[in-house]
Structure formats: structure tokens, C-alpha cells
């Protein structure tokens, strides 16, 4: 464990807690893409299958349970909670996210480190996580004005992968044979997808005005 990875995990944890806080306290999920939340639930479900077979540390297992629990409960809130589900803008959140799942699955079947069931699903979860934010970014473009909590959620989510890139550089430099091109490229693509959001987020923060994304 290194400081970059810990910072990344804490930022990731903060992003899901911000979202859960928003949904639980104001009983609203306006501006949140259910599609992205469903993709994240699939990402965690396919990535943490090894929770039953291999144990790394209490921290590792605890965080996996937290991420699984939070992502599935956010999807539950947005789909079934009587008050929250009414605030979900279904008409705007129209990204065909299943078109993201299939290519990621095919790619995982083609490019992976080992051709085993767990490894292919794990690789699939990496590819899917890289693109999972797209429905949310599209929704933010459409709804234009972003409330603070949703903006913070996307910002923290992008930041966590940025910290992970520093972690991979650190591990590459300090651990012999730590080379995982698939993870690195997927993580880099994911972070780049946030680039323009980060740009507008900092612009709004610097000029201290409401975050507006160009149409």
C-alpha cells in the first residue's frame, strides 16, 4: 500500500459517500445517471468475485464490501425508493449503456492476462469502469446546470483514478515485475474521459460561478 493508492481509495470512497449522502438526505437523485450507477454495480460485481476466493487484507475486503454495498444500494434507491425514483430524470438519461457492456466483454475475451473465468471478468470490469462515467457525463451536458453534490461526485470519481495512475507509477518504480499494461491503459483512458469535465470544473471553481458545461 502506498500513499497514492490510499488517497485514491479514500477519494473513491468519498465519491460514493457524497452520492449516497445526496440521495439519502435530500431524497433526490436529480442529475444522477442511473445508467452509470448500474454500470458501476456491474463493475464491482465482476471485479470483486475474488472476495470469496482470495484474501489480501481486512482493508481490502472491507472496502470491497463497502463499494459493493454502496453501488447496489444507490441503484436500489434510484429504481425502487418511492420518493427518490420520482426525481430520476428518465427522459434525459438515455445513454444506451448496454452498448458499452458488450464491447467491453468482447474486448476482455480478446485481451486479458490469463484466460480464466475470474481473470476475464476482472478484465471486463476494468474496461467497463473506464467508460462507465459516459452516461453521467452525457446527462450533465444535457441538464447543463450541475448541483454541487453531483459535480463533487464526478470530480472525486475522476480524481480517484488519477491517484491510481500515480500509484501505478510508484509501484512500477519500486516493485520489480509490476507491469500491468491492461490496467494502466484502461485507467489512463478513464482519467482522460474526465479531462474536459475537470477543465470546466476548475473554471467554475476559479471564477466562483455555477458549473456550466457547454452544450
Amino acid at each position: 500500500m502506498n500513499i497514492f493508492r490510499l488517497a485514491g481509495d479514500m477519494t473513491h470512497l468519498a465519491s460514493v459517500l457524497v452520492l449516497l449522502l445526496k440521495i439519502h438526505t435530500i431524497k433526490s437523485c436529480a442529475g444522477v445517471s442511473l445508467k452509470t450507477q448500474e454500470l458501476y454495480a456491474i463493475v464491482f460485481a465482476t471485479r470483486y468475485l475474488d472476495i470469496f476466493t482470495s484474501f489480501y487484507s481486512i482493508y481490502n475486503t472491507l472496502m470491497k464490501l463497502i463499494f459493493l454495498g454502496s453501488s447496489f444500494s444507490i441503484v436500489w434507491y434510484m429504481r425502487y425508493h418511492k420518493t427518490v425514483r420520482r426525481t430520476y430524470d428518465r427522459e434525459q438519461d438515455t445513454f444506451r449503456h448496454w452498448f458499452l457492456v458488450l464491447p467491453c466483454l468482447l474486448l476482455a475475451l480478446l485481451i486479458h492476462e490469463k484466460f480464466t473465468f475470474l481473470e476475464v471478468l476482472w478484465t471486463f470490469s476494468l474496461y467497463l469502469e473506464a467508460v462507465a462515467i459516459l452516461p453521467q457525463l452525457v446527462l450533465l451536458q444535457r441538464t447543463r446546470n450541475i448541483d454541487n453534490l453531483t459535480g463533487q461526485y464526478v470530480f472525486l470519481l475522476g480524481g480517484y483514478r488519477g491517484f491510481y495512475i500515480l500509484n501505478w507509477i510508484y509501484r512500477y518504480l519500486t516493485e520489480p515485475h509490476f507491469v500491468h499494461w491492461i490496467t494502466w491503459i484502461a485507467g489512463l483512458v478513464q482519467t482522460l474521459l474526465y479531462a474536459d469535465f475537470f477543465y470546466y470544473y476548475f473554471q467554475s471553481w476559479k471564477n466562483n460561478k455555477k458549473l456550466q458545461l457547454p452544450a
Binding site: 473513491h12 482470495s54 489480501y56 472496502m63
Partner: peptide, 10 residues
């Protein structure tokens, strides 16, 4: 068993 470092991350 030997836990490969690739999957020790979240």
C-alpha cells in the same frame, strides 16, 4: 496461495 499483486488493488 500466492496472491498475485495484480489483484491486490480495489
Amino acid at each position: 496461495e500466492e496472491t498475485d499483486a495484480a489483484h491486490d488493488e480495489l
